[in-house]
Amino acid sequence: MKQTTHTDYLQHTLKQPIHFIGRGLHTGKHVSLTLHPAAPDTGYVFCRTDLQPPYNVVPARWMTVTETRLSTTIGNNHGVTVTTVEHLVAALFACGVDNCHIEIDGPEIPIMDGSAKPFVEQIIAIGTETQKKKRMALVMKEELWVNEGNASAGIMPFPEPWMDMSIDFKSKAIGQQNISVKLDQKNFSDYICAARTFGFSEHVETMKTLGLAQGGSMRNAILVENDMVANPEGLRFDNEFVRHKMVDAVGDLALLGVHIVGRFVGNRSGHRLNNQLLRKLMYKEDTWALTTLEDAIVNWDQIMEDPARQGWQFEF
């Protein structure tokens, strides 16, 4: 087991730029993407290089989410958007990259192979650089939930970052699946990041009519057809579907901008519900305390026992 070190509590950025090229899943447009090192407290900031500055900058935060239909889209006050950010953001966050300036020459992040694995592999290969600012963390002191129909998402007190996800589809190819893991770089890179996005053959034509899934194929998604997986290579994991839902949740929750020391529980939850949870969380300040990640982990018991402990104010 990896021992926690002092640098684990400090912010990190990339050691050098990383470049990707690919096609957007929904727009079908070919795009060039470059990840750059960024200063402490920058977070994740996108820059549309195909548009004119200064209107082309889009911060990736929970309050800049503008659309959650089939993917997470962020936008700025000038109407500039970046679509399908969740896999990249999940990879950055899980690999310990706190600050990154992201240049993209189109409207959508390339889907790559449909998972976060290509991003994770390159981030690990390049490595990260320690910065002289502490990581912040939100410590859950009370549980908080959002519900929509038979779906729910919540976060409850827990002494370390943890995630539970469960899904239930009528398709026999999927059915009921669940997974529960500690959220750290090793677990994400070993067990989660390679899980691909998925879709159903009966929905393809409708999505294309709506202008979605224009770049989708069995090279970048799992296709479920007649209750069977149509991809010749099959699945990467028996429960690849729920693992991918966890990839999405990691990316969606990373838009909070700080670590969450608590246990996320998603039941049939997706991008919309994940973002609703963060929005409710930010307006229920009595359910959490904001402090440094080191304080959150080392002094979790004391934080939980102190009813007045609220920590710093959250900066939006």
Rank of each mutant, 00 (worst) to 15 (best):
97 V>N: 12
113 D>T: 01
290 L>N: 07
216 G>K: 01
43 G>V: 02
31 V>M: 11
82 V>R: 03
180 S>Y: 01
273 L>W: 04
284 K>F: 02
112 M>H: 02
257 G>P: 12
167 I>G: 04
218 M>W: 06
3 Q>D: 09
234 G>S: 07
58 V>L: 13
105 D>L: 03
27 T>S: 15
199 G>P: 11
76 N>Q: 07
199 G>H: 08
68 T>Q: 07
240 E>C: 10
114 G>W: 13
88 L>G: 04
23 R>H: 03
207 M>T: 00
231 N>C: 09
185 Q>A: 13
180 S>M: 05
179 I>Y: 03
241 F>Y: 11
256 L>N: 03
204 V>L: 14
224 V>Q: 10
212 L>I: 01
68 T>E: 09
257 G>H: 06
81 T>C: 12
16 Q>W: 00
28 G>H: 08
188 F>W: 04
8 D>Q: 09
195 A>V: 07
196 R>N: 08
204 V>G: 02
123 I>V: 09
185 Q>N: 08
129 E>Q: 15
111 I>F: 01
19 H>M: 01
267 N>C: 13
162 W>C: 09
213 A>Y: 00
90 A>F: 04
280 K>T: 06
45 V>L: 14
302 Q>W: 01
229 V>C: 07
81 T>L: 10
216 G>F: 11
206 T>A: 13
101 H>Y: 13
80 V>N: 13
5 T>W: 11
112 M>C: 08
9 Y>W: 11
260 I>P: 11
224 V>G: 13
197 T>E: 08
180 S>D: 08
97 V>D: 06
137 A>E: 07
132 K>N: 15
239 N>H: 14
155 I>N: 09
182 K>A: 14
260 I>C: 03
170 K>E: 14
38 A>N: 01
313 Q>N: 14
106 G>I: 10
263 R>I: 00
197 T>V: 07
40 P>E: 07
95 C>A: 04
295 D>E: 14
187 N>L: 11
254 A>H: 10
281 L>Q: 05
8 D>I: 03
18 I>F: 10
146 V>T: 07
59 P>R: 12
270 G>M: 07
311 G>N: 08
253 L>R: 02
253 L>K: 04
53 P>Y: 03
240 E>F: 09
88 L>N: 02
149 G>Y: 01
69 R>F: 12
90 A>K: 03
168 D>M: 06
149 G>Q: 08
292 T>W: 12
93 F>D: 07
119 F>T: 05
315 E>Q: 15
286 D>L: 11
62 W>D: 09
94 A>T: 02
28 G>M: 12
99 N>P: 02
213 A>T: 03
133 K>R: 15
276 Q>F: 03
193 C>S: 15
47 C>L: 04
93 F>V: 00
250 V>N: 10
170 K>G: 14
